[in-house]
């Protein structure tokens, strides 16, 4: 498989001098074409900064990103992003169909062709009949499907997803996870998905990249050798899945892992994840304070 995304020596700092906050530190990895790679890391560890650098929304302080061999300098042509907050990412003044057509507007496509591509994308995410509705008339899960359809309609070489299922309820989340895997296999899309949910990263990914807490560096790059066809119940019960999620959880812990029974382990995971979140929010707060200071003079 050819390499689709290549990230080399990526660094990103906010501010400069003593007050500088290092969000991403010396990060390198690559994603093969057709792969679904998950990045998992504690909340606020710099995942969003990393994604924004890769998507070309912000220039990295140092290092390089290249997409199918071309250096990323500003947002590349064939990339799409699905954001966590679907209600803010969809355009409320456009109908569902027009939202999906949006990225095709300025392409050299006939009106007919554009409508067909949008319809295809909506069919792919199982939303065939809602094209004429406005986003607010749909449930949260359906709205996020619309943004996935919109991203797919532009047939991106790389689809970046920033915590795409973090704002929907658990049941919908399972549905969307299965939908994403199915669509990805059908369309052979290369996907880079960021999440803070360990189970999700293992369940969805062909590969899991584990990030440390801020500043973000890669701690481990684990291949997920689960069968390609996954099932929310059977796969999550399988020994391989449990072992993998345990491994990821251990890697995310800052304190050295102790020998513990599996059940206790799970409780501890939650505790550490919470602790990580605490420190992360604290850091985010200081980061904000720093940037506020910066703008005032």
């Amino acid at each position: 498989m050819p390499t689709m995304l290549e990230v080399t020596g990526l660094n990103h700092r906010y501010g400069s001098g003593d007050g500088a906050h290092v969000a991403v530190k010396d990060l390198s990895f690559s994603v093969d074409a057709g792969q679904l790679a998950c990045i998992v890391g504690p909340s606020g560890c710099g995942k969003s900064t990393l994604l924004r650098c890769i998507a070309g929304l912000i220039p990295p302080t140092d290092g390089s990103v290249s997409l199918h061999g071309d250096a990323v300098n500003g947002v590349p042509d064939d990339l799409a992003v699905v954001f966590q907050d679907y209600s803010r990412s969809l355009f409320p003044w456009l109908t569902v169909a027009r939202n999906v057509e949006f990225p095709l507007r300025w392409r050299k496509l006939g009106k007919q062709e554009r409508a067909e591509r949008a319809q295809e994308a909506l069919d792919a995410v199982g939303l065939s009949g809602v094209g004429r509705k406005f986003p607010w008339q749909l449930s949260g899960g359906m709205q996020q499907r619309v943004s996935i359809a919109r991203a797919l309609a532009s047939k991106p070489a790389l689809l970046i997803m920033d915590e795409p299922f973090a704002s929907v309820d658990a049941q919908t989340r399972f549905e969307l996870e299965d939908l994403l895997r199915r669509v990805q296999r059908e369309q052979r899309t290369t996907i880079l998905l960021v999440t803070h949910d360990i189970d999700e990263s293992v369940y969805l990914g062909d590969r899991v990249l584990v990030l440390s807490k801020s500043p973000a560096t890669i701690v481990a790059d684990l291949p997920v050798d689960l069968p390609a066809d996954r099932d929310q119940i059977a796969t999550r019960e399988s020994a391989k899945f449990v072992a993998l999620r345990g491994e990821v959880a251990r890697l995310l812990q800052t304190v050295p892992a102790k020998q513990a029974a599996p059940e206790q382990q799970a409780d501890e995971d939650v505790a550490t994840a919470d602790a990580a979140e605490w420190t992360a929010t604290e850091e985010a707060a200081t980061e904000n304070a720093g940037s506020a200071k910066e703008t005032s003079h």
Partner: peptide, 9 residues
Amino acid sequence: VKVDTARSF
């Protein structure tokens, strides 16, 4: 978020 969405396209 809409600014970022539009930019990403």
